[in-house]
Amino acid sequence: MLRQPLETGEVTISRAHSTVTYPSSFILLLAMNPCPCGYLGSPHHYCTCSQKQIQAYKNRLSGPIYDRMDILLSLQSVNVNKLSHVKESSADIRKRVEAASLKQLDRYGEEVSNNKVPFEKMMAASPLSNEQRQLLTRVSSKQNWSNRVQIKIIRLARTISDLAGEEQLSDGAIWEAMKLRRWDMNKPHLIAREK
């Protein structure tokens, strides 16, 4: 049910006598434990789940929804007493976001984000280099990423470059976007940067 509004930004309701389409642009945040007991990958607790239970638990998230997610992260618990001080204030982050939005406005000639602009228009304004394309193809093949996931990585990398103030799509931004697609607690270094 979520696939249509996630992809098109609209939801269509059909009944016997009429069909109505409503705008449905939203940000979807999902959270789940790494396994049924919640301790997979924990340095402080022992996970009691079998590999079969863990896989069945992860399979509850359908492939089509998984493909439509922009960022997937596996988070570890933190000791709040050892947290470091914030390095960047909210005001500084806001300035970077506003600057990135202006870059996108200049690039596309309309008020649209990298996430919503037609992919062809984004690639025409900010193409990948041959090396970047080969890198993405190589890693996607190893990770079994679909075309939809690869497009999401490119969109995310473009946004990362914009937030860093970079004019061109950087190799570092592509690496960062690919790292934001890992969620396997058993493989924390799922994507190792090639040298």
Rank of each mutant, 00 (worst) to 15 (best):
residue 172 G to M: 11
residue 12 T to C: 10
residue 34 P to D: 07
residue 70 D to S: 10
residue 93 I to Y: 06
residue 147 N to S: 11
residue 26 F to L: 10
residue 76 Q to P: 01
residue 67 D to N: 06
residue 63 G to C: 05
residue 8 T to W: 01
residue 170 S to T: 15
residue 104 Q to S: 04
residue 46 Y to C: 09
residue 124 A to W: 00
residue 131 E to V: 12
residue 176 E to L: 08
residue 30 L to K: 02
residue 84 S to M: 07
residue 143 Q to R: 13
residue 37 C to F: 04
residue 63 G to S: 08
residue 134 Q to K: 11
residue 60 R to G: 14
residue 156 L to Y: 05
residue 195 K to R: 13
residue 13 I to W: 03
residue 141 S to M: 10
residue 47 C to F: 00
residue 115 N to T: 12
residue 159 T to D: 02
residue 31 A to T: 15
residue 14 S to Q: 13
residue 175 W to M: 12
residue 158 R to H: 04
residue 78 V to K: 02
residue 75 L to S: 05
residue 6 L to N: 02
residue 75 L to C: 10
residue 135 L to K: 11
residue 195 K to W: 08
residue 71 I to M: 14
residue 29 L to R: 07
residue 145 W to C: 04
residue 192 A to K: 15
residue 67 D to G: 02
residue 51 Q to Y: 03
residue 193 R to I: 13
residue 63 G to Q: 09
residue 22 Y to M: 12
residue 128 L to I: 02
residue 194 E to T: 12
residue 28 L to Y: 03
residue 105 L to G: 00
residue 120 E to F: 05
residue 192 A to G: 12
residue 164 A to E: 15
residue 91 A to Y: 11
residue 97 V to S: 03
residue 48 T to Q: 11
residue 153 I to H: 00
residue 74 S to E: 14
residue 52 K to L: 11
residue 169 L to K: 00
residue 139 V to N: 01
residue 165 G to Y: 05
residue 163 L to Y: 05
residue 79 N to Y: 03
residue 128 L to W: 01
residue 91 A to I: 13
residue 116 K to P: 00
residue 30 L to M: 15
residue 78 V to H: 03
residue 33 N to Y: 08
residue 31 A to Y: 11
residue 66 Y to G: 01
residue 111 E to V: 10
residue 155 R to I: 01
residue 193 R to Q: 14
residue 157 A to H: 06
residue 82 K to E: 10
residue 34 P to I: 06
residue 96 R to H: 11
residue 37 C to M: 06
residue 142 K to T: 08
residue 55 Q to A: 14
residue 102 L to C: 02
residue 19 T to H: 03
residue 13 I to Y: 08
residue 137 T to G: 06
residue 134 Q to S: 11
residue 178 M to E: 04
residue 113 S to C: 13
residue 25 S to K: 15
residue 110 E to L: 12
residue 18 S to V: 12
residue 135 L to H: 11
residue 165 G to I: 06
